[in-house]
């Protein structure tokens, strides 16, 4: 088990290193010259030289890369052009808003998706099952931005029940969280339903019933534990997608999270912020996969004892 975790951690570190390298070269080579962007239109060539020197852009690429890595390890990703603050600080100041919305949406998706999925599998063709199937179909085919706009028009503009923008009260959560969780609920409903149907058909479940295990325990201990193996990957994917902040939803509802930050930074060509966003997102993704592998090992002893 320890060897297993150590291996995963090493893989995570190597992945992060590769990502840093790729991000460095893409931003240095793909993006426009940062100096010309930062300078005011009336700047002299001398100003440009000074700035180039300040950012170390006059040095060979390989040296720049070395400096980049060194700074990255220290957590220094340069200053935002727009806020004259470290890019990471800017990002972190917005992250709580994304995290908050993401967590609410995630918990909604998890509780609603899993319960509909499990109940549908236990009672196929029941009302819940039919409702779940219609909802899943809708949730997977309706784009979230469209759902968002419709909700704003109906509950925000026509009925004036819910605030249409910003963060603050509990009411502000309802629409963005619902839009954000629409697709995940649909996905989880379908996946947990089919995984549970498979599990409930299996011999070990019949065996548990033969032993006289009460049905609720058959469902939650014997069947769900097995079904969760195929659901857990998706749960992680959803969790990750949600707390990383949704660019679309945050912009529709003017939610001050990192999804909104990255879009405005992009328009303002605030590259350090965009770059730190990309790195942060990949860092979280890598962490999630690490965590996922550990959770797998926890659920499935076959992995643990390899």
């Amino acid at each position: 088990m320890q060897g297993y975790i150590l291996k995963r951690v090493l893989i995570a570190i190597v992945t992060m290193f590769v990502v840093l390298t790729v991000v460095f070269f893409v931003f240095r080579m793909g993006a426009a010259d940062p100096v010309s962007i930062m300078l005011p239109p009336d700047a002299t060539p001398k100003d440009a030289q000074k700035l180039t020197k300040k950012f170390g852009l006059d040095k060979p690429l390989i040296v720049q890369y070395g400096n980049f890595l060194k700074n990255a390890i220290r957590g220094d990703f340069g200053a935002s052009f727009r806020y004259s603050e470290p890019a990471l600080t800017v990002l972190f100041s917005r992250f709580p808003a994304s995290l908050e919305l993401g967590l609410v949406a995630f918990l909604m998706a998890l509780s609603i998706g899993l319960s509909i999925g499990i109940i549908s599998a236990v009672k196929p063709d029941s009302f819940i099952d039919r409702f779940g199937r219609v909802f899943a179909l809708g949730g997977m085919s309706v784009p979230s931005f469209w759902a968002g706009v419709m909700l704003i028009l109906f509950f925000g503009v026509t009925l004036r029940w819910l605030p249409i923008a910003g963060r603050g009260s509990l009411l502000n959560f309802i629409m963005p969280a619902f839009c954000l969780s629409l697709f995940p609920i649909a996905l989880l409903t379908r996946l947990s339903r089919s995984a549970m149907l498979d599990a409930l058909k299996s011999d070990y479940v019949v065996m548990a019933r033969i032993k006289g295990v009460p049905e609720i325990r058959v469902i939650l201990i014997h069947a769900f534990k097995n079904a969760s193996i195929s659901v857990v990957t998706v749960i992680f994917g959803i969790f990750q997608a949600m707390i990383l902040g949704s660019v679309v939803i945050e912009n529709i509802f003017s939610w001050p999270g990192i999804g909104r930050l990255v879009l405005t930074s992009f328009f303002f060509r605030d590259y350090p912020v965009v770059q730190v966003y990309v790195l942060f997102v990949t860092f979280l993704v890598v962490m999630f996969y690490l965590l996922l592998d550990i959770v797998y090992a926890y659920i499935d002893p076959r992995i643990r004892y390899q």
Partner: peptide
């Protein structure tokens, strides 16, 4: 029935390997 199963009547299924829950 649940109270009878596993107590007064029990059964062994055809395939032992898949009759056991692999996670418990």
């Amino acid at each position: 029935m649940r109270r009878i199963r596993g107590d007064r009547i029990s059964m062994i299924l055809q395939d032992p390997m898949v009759s056991m829950n692999q996670l418990l």
